[in-house]
Amino acid sequence: MIEIYHLYQQYNDEMIALRDINLVIDRGEFVFIVGASGAGKSTLLKLFLREVKPSRGSIKIFGRDLVRLRNREIPYLRRNIGMVFQDFRLLQDRNVYENVAFSMRVTGVSVREIRKRVPLTLELVGLKDKVFKRPDELSGGEQQRVCLARAIINRPAMVIADEPTGNLDPVTAMDILNLLQEINIRGTTVIVATHARELVDRLQKRVIVLDQGRIISDQERGVYLNAR
């Protein structure tokens, strides 16, 4: 699903964000990417979404070569990747239903299909009763559930979560991770970049540790490893 070989990412002459990254993530995996701020987590996620192009090396997602991907093909790549953000990034002037429906609308799905699928997905993330609330009327956990619903509504092959629990209390954070696990069990690849040590240790999933732009550890059933 994701194949990265000898990938380097350099923003300017001095700063090298990623060095010689080699990484394969298979369909249906649940992967944590951990590391201190500035270790290169965000850069890696940006590469997955083709927000940036690698300076050197190769990266393939769903068999597509992202180095050669044309700009107008990027939207179609992203429709196959559900994104979950630390700061939720919901459209503040639209209610829960509209926020989730928008993500479907973008792909050109019919209104009938949207009306059918949005309520089902909102039920799945436990927001059946908040359909017409606006983001500012929701708690942090609820907003993250909307974000999650939005990420999976198009049935993407992969969900990427960037610090999904960063703004949440531990109990709510565990709820969100459980939801991510549930999504994973249904066959979606899930990649979570995080700082949350206890959660990583508890879930016993594959853990990739980044430090100063390098992968220093990549273990099945791994734990949060402190860099040096």
Partner: peptide
């Protein structure tokens, strides 16, 4: 946000 959810 629109760009992230795959809008052209």
């Amino acid at each position: 946000i629109m760009k992230y959810v795959g809008a052209t």
